[in-house]
Design a protein around this nucleic acid. Structure first.
Length: 295
DNA sequence: TGCCAGGCCGAAA
DNA sequence: TTTCGGCATGGC
């Protein structure tokens, strides 16, 4: 896919922190991207968004067409965050493709695309995505975030952020396995602890090989993840969409069921929504959850 | 207080 | 094969 045209420069803050500055990125809003339920480790703070990804603490500020990635140097931007933030896709092309596949079902998708036009699908670390969405099941977003923060602080590797404070990486599968069910108990994830441990075991033993999942067909990848106890179609779809960047997955949760019933009472053929069905799903999720689907 | 949450498991039908 | 109760916990 051809790259979008935007400029990137690297600098330092007055305090000496690394900054990557992006100018003129089309279809990108950090606020929307991190507030559409795909990632649980970022929070809105005064003047921006902060959180941990790939063992780095970063802050994102947006002003006047510029996006400032504070705590991100050139090497990390090129190796990690360009891909992480979904900046390797041309969203003009993505949106055109979605319109071509879904427009026949009415204007809803165009309204949703306009409403959430700054959303990008992140590429999170596969293990973190699998673990996070296991924890997400039958749970609400504020509590999912709390569990993950507590677990990271309790089990994850501590490191010093650009702000001089201690932050914690997402716990590795080894750390989760070492903790065991008893070690996970303080984080109050309930029945999901057993599932998380099964995921850690199968990931570490290679029984569920993430390198294989990465390359496998959609069907085979989903089947592989679903061999983990506690991973069903929805959790697998989310992990594949947000952690393996398989953009064709269209996770169906209670919100999307609501959207489908409300706007597509005649039904739609989900299998034929194209290579970016998952992006469309996020537009619809955001539209319904945060805007109540208002016109 | 009761309902619900980015569901899935396991047993019953 | 499909249906459905149960599940840990706490946000709202």
């Amino acid at each position: 896919m051809a790259k979008e045209k935007f400029t990137v420069r690297f600098s330092k803050t007055a305090g000496g922190a690394d900054v990557t500055v992006l100018s003129g990125v089309p279809y990108f809003s950090a606020a929307q991207t991190f507030d559409c339920g795909q990632c649980f480790r970022f929070d809105e703070v005064s003047g921006g968004i902060e959180g941990v990804a790939h063992g780095r603490f970063i802050r994102i500020e947006e002003e006047g067409g510029e996006v400032r990635l504070i705590g991100v140097n050139e090497q990390d931007y090129r190796a990690i965050f360009e891909e992480y933030l979904g900046l390797c896709e041309d969203y003009g092309v993505v949106r055109e493709d979605i319109g071509a596949h879904m427009g026949k079902y009415g204007d809803v998708i165009f309204n949703a695309m306009e409403c959430g036009k700054g959303i990008r699908i992140l590429k999170q670390e596969p293990w973190e995505a699998v673990a996070s969405f296991i924890i997400s099941q039958n749970n609400n977003i504020p509590r999912i975030k709390k569990i993950i923060e507590n677990m990271s602080a309790g089990l994850g590797e501590p490191f010093c952020g650009f702000d001089g404070k201690t932050h914690y990486a997402f716990p590795t599968a080894e750390q989760v396995l070492a903790a065991g069910e008893a070690g996970l108990a303080p984080f109050k994830m309930g029945f999901r602890a057993r599932y998380l441990i099964d995921a850690a075991k199968k990931h570490l033993s290679g029984e569920v090989d993430f390198a294989y999942v990465e390359k496998a067909s959609a069907e085979d990848a989903q089947k592989a993840l679903m061999s983990i106890c506690g991973v069903g179609p929805k959790v697998a779809s989310c992990a594949l969409l947000f952690g393996f960047h398989k953009l064709e997955f269209f996770p169906i949760d209670v919100w999307i069921k609501r959207v489908l019933a409300k706007y597509y009472p005649g039904g739609i053929d989900i299998a034929s929504l194209g290579a970016y069905a998952g992006v469309a799903q996020q537009y619809l999720f955001y539209y319904e959850r945060y805007m109540g689907g208002e016109e």
